[in-house]
Design a protein around this nucleic acid. Sequence first.
DNA 1: GACTGACATCACCATGGACTGATACTTTCA
DNA 2: TGAAAGTATCAGTCCATGGTGATGTCAGTC
Lengths: 101, 101
Amino acid sequence: MVMSVDTDLLRVLSDPLRLRIVTLLARETLCTTHLVEETGARQTNLSNHLKVLREAGLVDTEPCGRFTYYRLRPEVLEALSGQFAALAATARANADTKRSC
Amino acid sequence: MVMSVDTDLLRVLSDPLRLRIVTLLARETLCTTHLVEETGARQTNLSNHLKVLREAGLVDTEPCGRFTYYRLRPEVLEALSGQFAALAATARANADTKRSC
DNA sequence: GACTGACATCACCATGGACTGATACTTTCA
DNA sequence: TGAAAGTATCAGTCCATGGTGATGTCAGTC
């Protein structure tokens, strides 16, 4: 039984800047200002990407005064990892299965 | 140490039809004709997507007379799975790390 | 209450890429 | 050798989406 991978989630992660953000957030919880410093991207651009990450359930927001902290949710990445592992296992199990023409 | 995930590979996998192809190939090795039957997509369209999958190293081709068999390469998916797992593990380890503003 | 900083939203533009029809190439078979 | 089937390539169209500037909103500070 092959678990289906969510293409929307993959699309979200396939953007270089968004993956950069995710990688940075894996190391520490940051707010937008930090991300602007780290990535060199414009605030507007980052805000747009963070919205996408939020809507994909990849990050949680934590308002703190006038700052907004962004925290990565490991569960989502773990699930994705598991889905790819399952897909790879299926492929290995059926390595010799070939439909004839 | 966070392994960097390849965004190009993610972009390739984030297309619904391509992921569909990958999922089908995980179950059995197929040729283009089979994929046309299974997906309902045009031959030209499929050929384009298969080229993308080939160039991304996700599939191997095996010519067989006038047919071309496509075989999924599990290593690539396994590597991807491991990279996401590592990223998630990093995030769990640093769950309480927060940079102050 | 006026001002500044942090962040979000909006409207717009530019570009990548998915899909298509036409066509070329290659193999098999009559 | 001609025809048909399987597949790849090419040129073109169209749309989704990433980037940007202008602007809005809210919290803290004077």
